[in-house]
Nucleic acid binder design. Structure first.
Lengths: 145, 145
DNA sequence: CGGCATCCGAGTAGATACTG
DNA sequence: CAGTATCTACTCGGATGCCG
């Protein structure tokens, strides 16, 4: 697996962007109060990602449907994540006060916007996963020598 | 803060990609053994992200320099993360057997490739963070009513 | 059906002290 | 200087049972 060469220009560009993003905050604040990190922490959670991806595939899902799709998640964690994701605006919860009660979850526009980014990142991960796994294996054997 | 409208075409496209990525694996395997998740889990770690971003800004850093920049990280966690990141091929560790010993860390090409993705995601997060925070605040007050 | 409350166990982070 | 070792503390996930 060949990694595309990164040009000098890209490196400089990355550096410039990083400077723009973080240059003005001091290091202490950045780690303690960075709101971006809040957003990222929530958004990069393992279960949240799976929930969003499933809702990207199936337009609407109910609680127990999600529980089946997102294999291995517990009631507690699923309900926590759903609440947080709803609270952050990623998804929309619609409750139908029938008996028995029915609740449907679907992505908001914002959720779809995040889904796009997620897909890009996942495609990147998929492209390079063999590369990473090979590196890992190689690294392990190298340690022994 | 306005969220760009997601077109129907984009939604369908996302769905198609998701299907291509996950359609062939069953749900159980996907959550238990998905190598993409391994890669993502490592790469989306809070400290790993900060380490990579700092190394994107400063071409090379030594252990204690990193410890100062990545504010709040402990020796233990820093050395763990560095080892993992090196093992996965994100960064390159160069040891100079002087006295006192000197070790330098820098991003590999693969690391730079990931940095690009990270920056994109962070830009997205920065764009929408106010939106998320507003949603959160609104959600909290809504709960009371 | 769609959750919430409770409890428990495991893993993980952090602080500190120490070493090649 | 660049880590390792050790111990503690705490969070977080999973299972279970209950309720509107």
């Amino acid at each position: 697996m060949e990694i595309e060469t990164i040009t000098e220009h890209q490196r400089l560009n990355a550096k410039k962007k990083l400077n723009k993003m973080f240059g003005h905050v001091n290091l202490k604040d950045m780690t303690l109060a960075c709101p971006i990190r809040d957003v990222m922490a929530m958004a990069s959670d393992k279960w949240s990602i799976l929930i969003i991806m499933h809702l990207g595939y199936y337009p609407i899902l109910r609680f127990n449907e999600l529980k089946k799709k997102v294999y291995g998640i517990s009631n507690k964690v699923l309900s926590e994540r759903l609440k947080q994701l709803e609270g952050d605006g990623y998804l929309i919860r619609t409750m139908y006060p029938e008996v028995p009660i029915r609740v449907e979850y679907g992505l908001s526009d914002f959720g779809h916007s995040y889904l796009q980014k997620l897909i890009e990142l996942t495609e990147w991960a998929q492209t390079y996963k063999d590369c990473v796994l090979a590196n890992r294996a190689q690294y392990k054997t190298k340690k022994r020598s």
